[in-house]
Design a protein around this nucleic acid. Structure first.
Length: 735
DNA sequence: CTCAGGCGATATTCC
DNA sequence: ATCGCCTGAG
């Protein structure tokens, strides 16, 4: 057999990984070291050389994007459809298990996935139902707590509150939330994993079946697994399953959702005879970019140890641009993009990366102004938009009438004369009769307990649902024969949802209506996967699950060649010839939270994020920051990110160089104030009293930079300490 | 009782 | 800029 296509072009370490003999393997793969390639070629090796059935392989990753990529590469490599090969995200695969074995998992057949937003709403409801003080028991905090417990694999009974009364209450909330979800057939993200783990725990026969089937498990991004995911893998592997784990501790950026780098060490301890192989040769970036990345990450203390190297040339230096404000930053970045596109680069080869989604806006505006096609990943995703969730709530209610959250959403939009009071009564009735609100509403109508506008509103809603429910041959038309998108369209039109959004004749109304149309066309294009069909999952249920799990990634695929905008988190695993890392300011990146609290651990995670960002770039890398930025409607002055000062001096070039600083190469160092550099200004120095139009009077406590970039720190009597750009601040020197 | 408009407080990162 | 809460009109 010709196996050359599986190993040609691999370096020694990569080859060792791909061709490793049976057994457990831990691959410490640095950024750009060919991790995905090695993973997919290993799968091909197993199938073609070791004669492992594709059926016996399960490969798991964290993002849908990565899963799709892996599947595509496998198909290309094996040159056939990857039938029976399970590739997906943890959540996607666990969800499939729950659909297949809903009964054994103790779920309703019609169970639905709720997103983080729905979850928080529901927890808020539970807190209210328990008559807890919602200023002390905040839904957001409760959501966080419950998710953290679930990520740790804990049920309410597993948690020891000690003598902490608040914690005891929270555990009650958790238990009540759990009961509510159970009754309504709802499953949140963390529950998907926990439930499928418990499914195996409680059904040894089932576990045995899957252990027999999946003899080979491959786990990507192992450093991001949390406790329950690790337990899931460990359980499925059992004594005989072979585990192939790929990870990079330097790219662990998900500790906030329970990821434990320690799982990498645990793996070598819990599984016998794990072979560890390091991939340290980088094939992606220039020597300069790598040197910068290495220097930054070297400042972290907790590392397994790994240093990337490349045989490629040094390449060009990293650009650092100091913008006056966020508009200036966007203008500069887009101008550079225009020039690059004018030369040889495709738009899709350029990425703008940022720490928080809110930063994308200025760049979008500037891209629009210059008619440059772009695509924003993440942020408010398609299926998370209010109008889309409204429309889907109707569908959810059809799929699962006991989904009270869907009912409440449906009944409120468009307004139909059913308000708080009526709803509160219905909730009480539903609780008393231990039914869904929908059922309680029907009963209340029959009993004549509801009058007036509320009555007619509920009656027409009931009629709509009745006539469009699948399985109900409606007199108004054969509802059963409706296709998914037709059913959805009827719901949107006949419920008045479309009219409701059309009537909101504000500027954004048409985009909302257009989104509803887009949703209908997404439903039209939706195809039930072969696996789902085999599992007996209905088209409607599959579509709703898809909406929850994918949340709208893959939208806008039609535009191939567009500039990519995304957060640093979303960029992990991707690479671009040209990367702009924007918003490099203390308080933004690293985030204010990580600076204020958490000591070093949080700051180190931010630094890993910086490492991830830098290593996304192949050839061109530009970092930028704004001296002032409008945030939450307020002008703020942040200092350049401390990560900038961690870049070796010889790797960067300042696009608009500042005049010499007191400590060369060190951002944020305070320059001596030299009055003659400030032109016409009278002498200002440390300790000078000044007055500012907005902030009032204060004293200069610091200064840095010179010329047009000179900034001073002023401690204002009322407004506190601020950094101001001297050229704009119009400070008046006082006596 | 319902609902819209004004007001104040509030923001990471994602399956 | 957006969300949730409060108020007053219908």
């Amino acid at each position: 057999m010709d196996i050359s296509h599986l190993i040609d072009g691999l370096n020694a370490a990569q080859r060792e990984v791909v061709t490793a003999p049976p057994g457990h393997l831990l691959v410490l793969a640095g950024a750009g070291s060919g991790k995905t390639r090695v993973l997919t070629q290993r799968i091909a090796w197993l199938v073609e050389v070791e004669n492992v059935w594709p059926h016996a392989i399960l490969a798991v990753t964290f993002t849908n994007k990565a899963a799709a990529e892996m599947r595509a590469r496998c198909e290309r490599l094996l040159n056939r459809p990857t039938q029976g090969l399970w590739i997906g995200t943890f959540h996607g695969l666990a969800h499939r298990l729950l659909r297949l074995h809903w009964r054994e998992a103790g779920l309703l057949e019609t169970f639905q996935i709720i997103d983080a937003d729905d979850q928080q709403r529901l927890i808020k409801r539970v807190i209210a139902d328990q008559n807890l003080d919602d200023t002390r028991f905040v839904a957001k905090q409760g959501t966080w707590l419950i998710n953290a417990w679930k990520d740790e694999g804990k049920r309410p009974r597993d948690i020891d509150p000690g003598d902490n009364p608040d914690l005891m209450r929270w555990i009650d909330v958790y238990a009540a939330y759990e009961a509510t979800c159970q009754r309504q057939g709802l499953v949140d993200f963390a529950e998907i994993l926990l439930r499928s783990h418990e499914l195996w725990l409680k059904q040894p026969a089932l576990l045995d079946h899957y252990r027999r089937r999946f003899s080979h498990l491959l786990v990507d991004e192992f450093q991001d697994t949390n406790t329950i995911q690790y337990a899931w893998i460990r359980m499925l592997a059992g004594a005989s399953g072979q585990v192939f784990a790929v990870g990079d501790d330097d790219q662990s950026i998900y500790s906030w959702r329970g990821a434990r780098v320690a799982n990498m060490q645990a793996y070598t301890r819990d599984f016998p005879g794990v072979t560890t192989i390091r991939l340290e040769q980088n094939y992606r970036s220039t020597g300069t970019i790598l040197a910068a990345a290495n220097a930054v990450i070297a400042r972290n203390s907790e590392r397994l140890g790994k240093e990337l190297w490349t045989s490629a040339g040094q390449g060009e230096p990293i650009s650092v641009y100091a913008a006056y404000n966020e508009q200036d930053e966007a203008r500069y970045v887009i101008e550079r993009i225009r020039r690059l596109v004018g030369e040889d680069l495709k738009r899709s080869e350029i990425a703008i990366l940022y720490r928080a989604n809110a930063l994308s806006r200025v760049f979008e505006e500037e891209l629009i102004r210059h008619s440059i096609a772009y695509r924003v990943y993440g942020g408010l995703r398609f299926f998370e938009r209010a109008e889309i969730k409204d429309a889907l709530a109707y569908l959810r209610l059809l799929a699962n009438p006991s989904d009270d959250g869907a009912f409440e959403r449906v009944v409120a939009t468009p307004p139909r004369g059913v308000g708080d009071k009526t709803l509160e009564d219905l909730r009480g009735a539903a609780r008393a009769a231990d039914t869904s609100i929908l059922t309680a509403a029907a009963a209340a109508l029959r009993a004549g307990a509801i009058k007036g506008r509320a009555r007619s509103g509920l009656e027409s809603l009931g009629a709509l649902i009745e006539s469009l429910s699948p399985g109900n041959a409606s007199p108004l038309g054969a509802s059963d024969s409706l296709r998914l998108h037709e059913r959805l369209e009827q719901l949107i039109d006949r419920s008045g949802l479309r009219a409701h959004y059309e009537a909101q004749s504000k500027h954004d109304a048409d985009s909302r209506v257009a989104n509803l149309d887009e949703l209908i066309s997404v439903a039209r294009e939706f195809v039930l996967s072969a696996e789902d069909e085999a599992a007996g999952i209905s088209e409607m249920a599959a579509f709703l699950s898809y909406a929850a799990l994918e949340a709208g990634e893959g939208q806008g695929e039609a535009w191939d060649d567009c500039v990519q905008l995304m957060t640093l988190h979303a960029a992990k695993g991707l690479e671009f010839p040209c990367v702009f890392l924007v918003g490099m300011e203390d308080g933004l990146f690293p985030s204010q939270r990580s600076i204020d609290e958490g000591g070093n651990a949080q700051l180190e995670e931010e630094r890993r994020l910086a490492y991830v960002g830098i290593t996304r770039a192949r050839r061109h890398l530009t970092l930028s920051y704004a001296e002032s930025r409008r945030m939450r409607g307020q002008e703020t002055w942040n200092r350049p990110s401390r990560f900038l000062s961690e870049l070796p001096r010889n790797t960067i070039t300042e696009v608009r160089p500042r005049a010499q600083l007191s400590r060369p190469g060190s951002y944020g160092a305070r320059a001596r104030v030299a009055s003659d550099d400030w032109g016409d200004q009278p002498a200002i120095g440390l300790g000078t009293r000044v007055s500012h139009a907005q902030f009032g009077e204060g004293v200069i406590t610091g200064a840095e930079g010179q010329g047009s970039h000179a900034r001073v720190q002023v401690n204002f009597e009322d407004a506190g300490s601020k950094w101001l750009v001297l050229a704009y601040a119009n400070l008046v020197v006082l006596g």
